[in-house]
Design a protein around this nucleic acid. Sequence first.
DNA 1: TTGTAGGCGTTATCAA
DNA 2: TTGATAACGCCTACAA
Lengths: 339, 339
Amino acid sequence: MANIYSVAKAARVSVATVSAVVNKSAYVSPQLRSRVEAAIEKLGYQPNLMARSLAVRKSHMLGMIVPDIANPFWPEVVRGAEDKAHELGYTLLLSNGDDAPAKEELYLRLFLAKRVDGIILTKAPGRPMKPEIAQALEKAHIPLTLLLRVQKGLSGDSVLLDDKEGAFEAVTHLLRLGYRRIGVIAGSNAVSTSRRRLEGYRQAHKEWGVAVDPALVGVGNFRIDSGYAAGRDLLKKRPEAIFISNYLMAVGFMQALRQYQLRCPQDIAIVTCDDHPWLDSFTPRLTTVNFPKYQVGAEAARVLVDRLTTRDRPIETVQLKSSLTIRESCGYSLRALAV
Amino acid sequence: MANIYSVAKAARVSVATVSAVVNKSAYVSPQLRSRVEAAIEKLGYQPNLMARSLAVRKSHMLGMIVPDIANPFWPEVVRGAEDKAHELGYTLLLSNGDDAPAKEELYLRLFLAKRVDGIILTKAPGRPMKPEIAQALEKAHIPLTLLLRVQKGLSGDSVLLDDKEGAFEAVTHLLRLGYRRIGVIAGSNAVSTSRRRLEGYRQAHKEWGVAVDPALVGVGNFRIDSGYAAGRDLLKKRPEAIFISNYLMAVGFMQALRQYQLRCPQDIAIVTCDDHPWLDSFTPRLTTVNFPKYQVGAEAARVLVDRLTTRDRPIETVQLKSSLTIRESCGYSLRALAV
DNA sequence: TTGTAGGCGTTATCAA
DNA sequence: TTGATAACGCCTACAA
């Protein structure tokens, strides 16, 4: 493939001149410029970005670790991040950490070796980041922006959701409809997101002066199986309503419901997290806490690139707002009169 | 960050020796080896993969263009491709082409500039690939593996689905249940996948000696809106059943159904393409043509890397098999006696 | 305004 | 067995 020397030769100029016209980094006389441009055209010259990165010591690549792109929560987030990254001139390197610290470390090391300029990380729960890795990141001046989850020991910019407020609204909605025995299926306690949603659940109860029955608090891991398992347990305790911390666990919960031949919302009301376009079309139509997924990803890329391009800026924490989308699964239509 | 010179100095050896131990590319005496290893450890040395790529003229990166990661069909495919790529020592560069030729060209050029070793492409419909780009790919020896869709003028390895057979099975299932006025919502005719699914639909009718009513053939673009629009039109023609070419259009169709206050499967039976774990949990439970999405992605990466590592191999075309997952939306339970 | 030359971090080819 | 040294393709002072 053509390189800068071949176009320089073809245009009868030096490589510096070619570089100048390619990067518009210096004035080049019209004659030379057009000769260079003609040569570029003729040879189909594409600057080698790897070589350029090596020279300028900037890869213009961003690493991103999400738990699992196959979990329907993430695609939109990734799409947002990718769109914004490209818009700003960066390429995204995507990895699935599976919430496993070992995998996360593997990918972090890969990012380090690839000399990405920055990293968007949704931290795996459990083991905190290895000091060696944290130091290497530090030494290489590779900034981290935390996505959704925070963890003590990890500092940096972050873009978060209003998990607590979202859960609070959701559970308040249920309380307002008259439900009192409200269960919850939370995610792992090791994840800040889960903890904050659980706090929201508790806070709502407190404000309404309703005691939380500990037997109605279930814990899962954000995957379908765990929603099913937690659902089987919880349903024995006869809750009137339930708040579920993400979509996949809600799917699992529905399986349990089906098995017990219970109907929603007649036998039990449901409010879940994460909205999806298709929820409108199937029954029961879920009432959900709707997080701005695309925007989360876009903001993460934006914040990270800001950090990269303007130095000495204070740490930035953006918190995006959720909104409650009310459909039938919360029993709204049945209970409306009770409001 | 430490480079090969600093570890060479720290270990009092030459860079060649360091390189040899890092890559195990030559015998190094135990003494020197351990000195080098100690230095690497101490300095936290990570070889710079960009520099290495420049030197060996291999980036170990694969470009991948999918229409839209936010369309729930793709995440699993991408996950499969990513897992396999990593397993084989490659990194995936993901881009969303939005089925827009202009975007596709943009990303193809980016891949070219980044010197990816190979490209997995789900071709956008419409305009064929620009000759200049095709030639550049050719000249740079960057192989293409086609994902799901073929297009005349584009050659190379490919991994495809048995679209026609899948659709044939689906529609045959409906015919077997006794439906005769069976509609279809196909994807764009410019996409080979759509055409083949439509062929399957026609073939099934032919084999059963049932004439296809042209008024029952709708066309969309794989997105929700188009499913809704096509649904509104089609429902006026009073089909007894319908076959829909992908999940998102099925979601749109359900909206139309809801608007007309029609029930599935009592008023109309539905079979769609693309299965998802959550389809089990919501009503109507869709009968679907289940494509092995993860495997599609994994195979694409595998085929591409095979092409990269063993030369002079014949073009490979892998075709993966679908299977019909029967639930209630096809009216199976209502019609079972009729079989 | 244009060109020369050194550096970015590796690998690979030869000598020694 | 080890070590110089020339690529790899580009950028960027610094000179002219």
